[in-house]
Nucleic acid binder design. Sequence first.
RNA 1: AGCCCCGUAGUGUAGCGGUCUAGCAUGGGAGACUCUGGAUCUCCCGUCACCAGUUCAAAUCUGGUCGGGGCUACCA
Length: 556
Amino acid sequence: MEGSDPRKTDFIREIIDEDIRADKHGGRVHTRFPPEPNGYLHIGHAKSICLNFGIAEEYGGKCNLRFDDTNPSREEEEYVESIKEDVKWLGFDWEDRLYFASDYFGRMYDLSVDLVRNGNAYVDDLTGEEIRQYRGNLTTPGRESPFRDRPVEENLDLLERMRKGEFKDGEKVLRARIDMAHPNMNMRDPVIYRILKASHHNTGDKWCIYPMYDWAHGLEDSIEDITHSLCTLEFENHRPLYDWFLDHLDVYHPQQIEFARLNLTFTVMSKRKLLQLVENKLVTGWNDPRMPTISGMRRRGYPASSIREFCSRIGVAKINSTISFELLEHCVREDLNRTSPRSMGVLDPLKVTIENLPDDHEDLMEVKNNPEDPGAGTRSVPFSNELFIERSDFLEDPPRKFFRLSPGKEVRLRNAYLVTCTDVVKEGGEVVELICRADLDSRGGDAPDGRKVKGTLHWVSAKHAVEAEVRLYGKLFTVEDPLGVEGDFTDHLDPGSLNVLNGCKVEPSVREKRVGASFQFERLGYFMIDPDTTDDRLVINRTITLRDSWAKIQKK
RNA sequence: AGCCCCGUAGUGUAGCGGUCUAGCAUGGGAGACUCUGGAUCUCCCGUCACCAGUUCAAAUCUGGUCGGGGCUACCA
């Protein structure tokens, strides 16, 4: 992954540099990306993936993919597969280091026995509700559980029986024995194990007690010899606990470092909220092209490299921030402009007949595939006397600075001919066809006398055109911060965020493209072939429009 | 209210005591160029939250104030 930027620096890389200088881990750098398999990955995860895998790459270290599957009640195999696919697609490789927290359940259990043995944990019979009450609140200290001082032997026995399944869900928990008056709520004797008689996607029914995050996560890092455990800011208050557990066991102690999670305007970034959109069928699925999920962006046509570039540009810091959606879009356009072959397609066709060409006229225009990339070669585009142009490229009564077609005006048909509109055919007031006269000396699009022709239109030969369904996507929400305004966030979904166009006419070469292929329809934007495409149905997604300065002018 | 974290242009960041009349990107504005009103190029748009110290010198160090965020799940 060659980043164009000279040398990224951020506070995390500074810490790592310092650790290497101090020979803290013998120069080793080992990170991990630890998703919980309870939803699809989104662009926020991409930030973490790029950070963790990127750092490992830069420092010649390693990065593990580890599923943090400690809660059987909401984790599914489907999510495991999608996450693997998304990480791979983003361009990262965990090699042979695919791990599951559930693989460590045995080790974790043994370690918890050590904790009990040393008097640092106890089995509590309080109910969930009671535990909550005993915990106190932000300003008042908690009270100690009456079971807190059980003898070690009794705790050992009870823990063993918890594991064996002798108790019902919620009947007992194992708790750390820390300090019920600690100003950090996380330190008020946090729960280590809870009883959950649920089948686990990986361990089946082997376990009926499952470790809590705070207990499990540090151990996972420790077991995997992680050097720098990078997580988001909301775990800052958990770090003392992360450290406490590791300090009270005879195990290797990695370092947790927190950074700010990604927020993006015009979207929501919580798995719970995204799940809500999916379950309530407000979108077509996790991979709906309007979703901020990796799979959604993939289907939308965002290149993986543009997402990586975006993640590199936003940087890593501890400031809570919201990145404007435009930056992501900029990265997508920049990438696609460089790499996408061009073609022509007409979304809203208006028929044009060239009056000075015979009915059976056919011709092949040799056209550059990508003006940005001479190596991309050329292709032949069929031309005839009957064409389609974009309806919005004609106005009977044009405003000033309208460089397109109108009665009597001359424009260029891209790579074809200069044409002048000589007549307008209407049916019931609606324009149904234009009659144009071509300058036959301008074949290829160059004016024979060097005269300036300001407007250039895209076109498709009517008799050669391929029909397509084109799906136009816009922002999912109408407001920058769907969670920060009145009402439920779903109230602010944009009903116009999906616009399906049928009967679009595209040049024949588009039919040859594979599913997933990106290309530009000149003057319109970047598109990609949707997986819904079949032998007799061509479905195209619009990834993003071109920057449109005409639209800007119109607004004024 | 207790604990933790943060505060540089609209947005996101660089900056690690002088080389900062604060760099870059994005965004916005103006123009040039152009067979995509695309791309490209040029120019313009910021008194480092505030106050007090330390220092010859502070965006950078110290203290305080103000502002923002997080934490009271048998979730992660």
